[in-house]
Design a protein around this nucleic acid. Structure first.
Lengths: 344, 344
DNA sequence: TTGAAAGCGCTAACAC
DNA sequence: GTGTTAGCGCTTTCAA
């Protein structure tokens, strides 16, 4: 529980100036090897750790890129952390994972963090950002939105995004169900009023049915509960239970995330029904876990690793000022596994 | 992309001193309401954000408690974040989630962070900490280890821990399998050489078999792969595949984590076998997901929410110097679900 | 109620 | 190669 020891102390102990110590601990070239070794010895001995705040305050720049995540625990995101970290470190950047509670704080937190850490750039992951956000404009480092959706309507923020076409991909998912002969397709959509990712997927659902000449039965449109985390297993379970209890007829459930689908599985088992014999289920995202379920979940795969890498690539280009603003839309892939039955 | 605006700028614009601005933004009592309002107006107008580094550097203390997690993506841990956050904020503390890559960095990172943020306390979650660590002793704020195991042998660090008795709990799990008539019980243990949590659970396995007069068949002891993240679904899958390929006879598999068990499920399905009819499977941890699998995973539940709350409670006591060092061992609960068949 | 001024610990000129 | 020194932006005495 030693008192805080500073660079001055080390300098005094070694009988050198503070700048020499600074050079030693920062691997500065212009320093005598002997002196350096002696200083580092002392540093180790006294377990001196430079104060990051002072350093950040003084330094004109860092080499850090932050990943600001809304929903750190989300399996879809956690599986991308390594991609970001590896790609960033491969390019000589320090990596910082920062979690934000909810969308509201995102711009302010980004601003604060960018100043505090003198960030070189930011990747936003998850959440939803008001395109008209004032604080975001204040962030004076390049940033990229990865899987952060624009609102499906209204003006889009003029900023680089990496994502998928939620509406089109969702439509394709439902097209597939229709092609398999399903007509009564329930949807477990996002919380009511979600105008971002979840909203887009609901729109795709409507569009597909319309195109197939099937009138959307609003009684088959279920929304996740507001008081449970969106996109979670639990939300899928609770809502699917309601769906089943509603006694409405349906042959397939479209869950707008794989985790939600896993919840739906349980609700369906609980009701003594079989997948896909009695009810077909599809998910969305293509997380690893879907492959471990029984039956394997048919889903729409987002190329999340490529999306992570591309986000980094775009950010680095932005940093070196090689490129302007652009939306990068990745293709999704329909992964037909075992959770859908052909009927009709 | 405005230039960084500082407290000085605000002061100049408002025609006041910097200290007055400081008082305004920090809700200091001794300040004229009118002046304060005028200043805050300007702050908003220019979107001024105080520099955290400068603030941290200057401030003698903060009100922040950090949760330092090794393995941010681990489902078992992610399900505890909210518990920590809520409990901490309820007690008037700021919450900070910090991720560390691997065990090696933990003490150094803790030290750095505690200085940088002038932490009031630290909760460590996951990972493994060398009880002889020098840097940890240098951390001059109270800390608690939550689900961070001591090594199963050798000296324990003199520090407060919150966890379970891995050896005993593991033994009880295997006892159960024995009681259900199983004699050929394979184990998917942690990576070879793991002397912490995973090592303890392996020890419990050996102990139970011994007590039941069953000689441990080393060919049924499988270790997770070092090149895949420990405790993951994937690791469970790969290793169980090997187990099955080994052609050794066994009637049950004990996976030392639920995620690992989920991986084992898949490998078993792949081999065309049925759970629990052909092979019984048990997990460990009691994560939510286990309840969604088919069949539901029989597991050993760690009371993780209580553990999180207790960690906070202990830390707060430590901070107010009410209590000394102690190991808190929580009871675990055998949750028998549907993945084990009675045989013999 | 307010302002001036002294640092917090560090880096980066600049001088030697 | 090395030491001296001026701040980075902020909080906090201390005087006014």
């Amino acid at each position: 529980m030693s008192e805080n020891i500073t660079i001055k102390d080390i300098a005094r102990i070694c009988g050198v100036g503070v700048s020499t110590v600074s050079r030693a601990i920062n691997d500065d070239p212009g320093i005598n090897e002997k002196t350096k070794e002696r200083i580092l010895e002392t540093v180790r001995k006294f377990r001196y750790v430079p104060n990051t705040s002072a350093r950040n305050l003084k330094m004109t720049e860092s080499n850090t890129i932050a990943l600001i995540v809304c929903g750190v625990g989300n399996t879809f995101f956690t599986s991308m952390y390594d991609d970001f970290q590896n790609e960033l470190e491969k390019n000589g950047y320090d990596f910082l994972l920062h979690s934000v509670d909810n969308d509201v704080n995102i711009p302010a937190e980004a601003l604060r963090l960018s100043k505090e850490k003198r960030l070189k750039g930011i990747v936003f992951l998850g959440g939803w950002i008001n395109p008209n956000s004032k604080s975001l404009l204040n962030v004076n480092v390049p940033y990229v939105f990865c899987t952060v959706s624009h609102t499906i309507e209204g003006p889009h923020a003029p900023c680089p995004t990496v994502g998928i076409d939620d509406i089109a991909a969702s439509k394709r998912m439902v097209d597939y169900l229709c092609d398999m002969g399903h007509k009564k397709i329930a949807i477990i959509a996002g919380v009511e009023g979600d105008m971002a990712v979840a909203g887009g997927r609901l729109l795709g659902y409507r569009k597909s049915l319309e195109e197939h000449g099937i009138e959307v039965d609003e009684d088959l449109v279920f929304h996740m509960k507001k008081d449970i985390d969106e996109f979670t297993v639990e939300n899928g379970y609770v809502v699917t239970k309601e769906l089943i209890a509603s006694k409405k007829e349906f042959t397939a459930v479209y869950c707008i995330s794989d985790l939600t689908a896993i919840g739906a599985y349980r609700a369906i088992y609980d009701a003594g029904l079989k997948i896909p014999d009695d009810i077909s289920v599809v998910g969305f995202d293509g997380i690893e876990l879907g492959d471990y379920m029984n039956p394997r979940i048919t889903t729409m795969v987002q190329p999340r690793h490529e999306m992570a890498l591309e986000s980094v690539r775009i950010l680095l280009k932005l940093i070196s000022q090689e490129e302007g603003i652009a939306d990068t839309v990745f293709p999704t892939e329909l992964l037909t596994r075992d959770s859908v039955k052909k009927i009709g």
